[in-house]
C-alpha cells in the first residue's frame, strides 16, 4: 500500500500533517509528533503583530516609572538582552530541523510588507523546508473594497515569493467574493499550495458581565464540508497543491479530503483534544479502509471526487443548495 504523497515539492510518507498549533511550541512537542509518525509538521505561526506588541510592551514596562523619583530610578534589573522578536521562533526552527527528519513547514503571520519579507527570509535561513503564509486579515474598514483586500493578499504573496526560494503555501479564509478567481490569482502570484481554510477565532459574549470574551473552540467534523467543496471545485483548475485543514478528525475525513483533491490533510483540533497518538490510529484506519476498498495508493484517489472527475459536476454548485433545503423539509406526516 502506497500512502506517499507530494506536497509543496516535498515527498511525504503519508498525507497526515499536523497543522499550526501549540503542539509545535516546543522541541519536545515537535519530536513527539515525529515519534507519532506525522508526515510533516506545520509549525505554529510567527506573528509579527505579537513581536511588535511584545517589544512595545517591554519598552513600556521598562520605561514606566523610571527616572521620576530619586530613590527608584528604575524598577527592574538592567538586563543585557531579551529574547524577543523572532529569535525564539527561529531558534526553534533551527533546533527542530536538527532534531527531526520529517519536513518542517514554518508558518508566518505578518502585518507590514517589510515584516512579511524580513521574517520569511529569516525563516528560510533558519532551515525551514517550506513556508506557509497565514494571512489573517479582517477587513473591518467600511472604506476598504474587496478588490483592495485581494490586491493586498496578492502583493504579500508576490513579495514573499520574490524573497525566498523555499516552496510557499498560502493559508486562506473562505471569505472571498470570487474564491476560484482568488485561488487562481494567488497561484499566479507565486503560491505553490493553498491551505483551505483558516479558522477565525470568533469572540463570544459573556452575558453576565456584558463583556466580549475570546473563545477558542476546536473544530468539529462538520467544518470539513466547506474546504472539501472548495478543493473539489478548484482541483485541476488551479495549478497548485492543496492542503485541507478544518474539520479533519478521522480517517473518513482524510479520505474525503484526498478524493476532493487535497495533497495532504491537516489536523490540529483532533490532536489537541486526543493527543498526537491519533495520527497512527487514523493512519491505521485509513489503511484498513483502503485495503477493504481495494485502493493501492493515495495518489490514485487524490482528486478522484473533484468536480471535474465526478459524474455530476453540478452537485457542488448552487443548484444543489435547493436540494439540501428540500432534504430538511418537515415530515409531512407530522404537520398540523
Amino acid at each position: 500500500m502506497d500512502l506517499t504523497t507530494r506536497y509543496l515539492g516535498l515527498e511525504l510518507k503519508h498525507p497526515l500533517v499536523p497543522s499550526a498549533s501549540p503542539l509545535s511550541n516546543t522541541l519536545d512537542g515537535i519530536r513527539r509528533m515525529e515519534d507519532d509518525n506525522a508526515a510533516a509538521i506545520v509549525m505554529y505561526s510567527l506573528f509579527e503583530e505579537q513581536i511588535t506588541h511584545e517589544s512595545m510592551e517591554l519598552d513600556h514596562y521598562l520605561a514606566m516609572g523610571t527616572d521620576s523619583f530619586g530613590e527608584a530610578l528604575s524598577y527592574f534589573p538592567n538586563f543585557e538582552h531579551f529574547h524577543i522578536g523572532p529569535d525564539q521562533y527561529l531558534e526553534l526552527v533551527r533546533a527542530a530541523k536538527a532534531a527531526v527528519d520529517i519536513p518542517l513547514i514554518a508558518s508566518l503571520n505578518g502585518v507590514s510588507t517589510g515584516g512579511w519579507i524580513q521574517y520569511a527570509r529569516m525563516i528560510e535561513e533558519a532551515g525551514a523546508d517550506a513556508l506557509e503564509l497565514n494571512i489573517y486579515y479582517l477587513p473591518a474598514d467600511p472604506a476598504m473594497t474587496g478588490a483592495a483586500v485581494e490586491e493586498m493578499y496578492l502583493n504579500i504573496v508576490r513579495d514573499v515569493k520574490a524573497s525566498i526560494s523555499i516552496p510557499l503555501a498560502v493559508k486562506l479564509s473562505p471569505y472571498f467574493s470570487a474564491m476560484a478567481n482568488m485561488a487562481f490569482r494567488l497561484s499566479v502570484a507565486g503560491a505553490d499550495a493553498l491551505v483551505l481554510f483558516n479558522r477565525f477565532y470568533q469572540p463570544d459574549f459573556d452575558l453576565e458581565n456584558l463583556e466580549v470574551i475570546p473563545n477558542l473552540q476546536l473544530s468539529t467534523p462538520v467544518e470539513l464540508r466547506l474546504p472539501l467543496r472548495w478543493i473539489a471545485m478548484l482541483y485541476g483548475r488551479v495549478e497548485v497543491d492543496f492542503a485541507l485543514t478544518s474539520g479533519v478528525h478521522g480517517h473518513l475525513d482524510v479520505l474525503k479530503s484526498l478524493m476532493a483533491g487535497a495533497n495532504v490533510t491537516m489536523m490540529a483540533s483532533e490532536l489537541l483534544r486526543h493527543g498526537t497518538q491519533r495520527i497512527p490510529a487514523i493512519l491505521a484506519d485509513l489503511q484498513n479502509w483502503m485495503e477493504e476498498h481495494e485502493y493501492e495508493s493515495v495518489q490514485q484517489m487524490i482528486g478522484s471526487m473533484s468536480q471535474k472527475n465526478v459524474a455530476e459536476p453540478t452537485a457542488f454548485e448552487r443548484a444543489n443548495y435547493m436540494k439540501v433545503l428540500d432534504s430538511w423539509r418537515p415530515d409531512p406526516t407530522q404537520v398540523g
Partner: peptide
Amino acid sequence: TYSKRGDVV
C-alpha cells in the same frame, strides 16, 4: 539604548 527591546522600538 533600545535595540534590546526590539527593532520596532
